[in-house]
């Protein structure tokens, strides 16, 4: 099969798929999720049920919290696979990092990045944000350490054992709150009613802030482990 024949066949396949998608869109009914059904219920009574101002956080960590647990399991599987594939025995090759100016400036800025990450995590039920986004911001700190200060600095400050501890701690917090839901309210990952307080304050909304903190540490540590495993002997040159 020569090149031209292959291109012609590919273009035929692409045109066919595009036409099928277009026909499917013309068959699709209008969007009516808000008039009836689940979305209507969540919008009407989500604030009274969970005490969380942010309805997306209410869906993620209360109504569909079991789904989020499955997602955490997927991240755990990805981290396990990457560490298993890229496992190595020796320490990483260190670099001297970037120049003095960048090191000092990031030394000033890194605590504020950490503060912003914790703000996004703990205010997940009041403002946009939550465990996933704040966790990725915390993972960015580890990436900054690896690139700017060299990977040996990252190894000394947050060794892989510490990251593993954070990740398992976050997952165990999630599972423990789920089991507490069984013991006190009667269903797995049920929102703990005795923890609710006045709506709009920082510690309210039952167990949602604690699940946020657990998911944040789990996602942050997991993505930091992924990045740390992928930079073997990468930044050895001195820029």
């Amino acid at each position: 099969m020569n090149k031209l024949m292959k291109k012609i066949m590919i273009s035929v396949v692409l045109t066919g798929v595009a036409f099928a998608l277009y026909q499917n869109f013309s068959l699709m009914p209008e969007y009516q999720g808000l008039n009836e059904g689940l979305s209507n219920y969540i919008i009407k009574s989500g604030l009274n049920d969970t005490g969380s101002l942010n309805l997306i956080t209410a869906v993620l960590y209360d109504y569909r919290a079991f789904d989020s647990l499955g997602e955490s399991t997927v991240i755990f599987g990805a981290v396990s696979g990457i560490v298993l594939i890229l496992s190595r025995k020796m320490l990483p090759v260190s670099s001297k990092g970037l120049s003095f100016i960048v090191k000092r400036a990031l030394g000033i800025m890194t605590p504020f990045i950490a503060l912003f990450g914790f703000y996004v995590i703990t205010h997940g039920h009041l403002t946009p944000g939550g465990g996933f986004q704040g966790g990725v911001i915390l993972a960015a700190i580890s990436i900054i350490f690896s690139i700017v200060y060299g990977s040996a600095f990252d190894y000394r400050r947050y060794s892989p054992q510490t990251k593993t501890l954070f990740e398992t701690g976050g997952a165990l917090t999630f599972l423990g709150l789920g089991l507490a839901g069984i013991l006190m309210e009667g269903a797995f990952l049920q929102n703990l009613g005795f923890l609710t307080a006045e709506t709009g304050t920082l510690i309210s909304a039952g167990s949602i802030p604690y699940i946020n903190i657990g998911v944040g540490f789990k996602v942050g540590a997991g993505l930091a482990i992924i990045f740390y495993s992928m930079i073997q002997k990468t930044f050895e040159e001195d820029f």
Binding site: L98, S99, V102, A105, L106, I108, M109, F239
Partner: peptide, 19 residues
């Protein structure tokens, strides 16, 4: 934050491309 980060990143890029 812009006032801090933009000159710093520019410095890093210029230094790397010089070396």
């Amino acid at each position: 934050f812009f006032l801090f980060s933009n000159p710093m990143a520019t410095h890093a890029i210029a230094r790397a491309s010089y070396k």
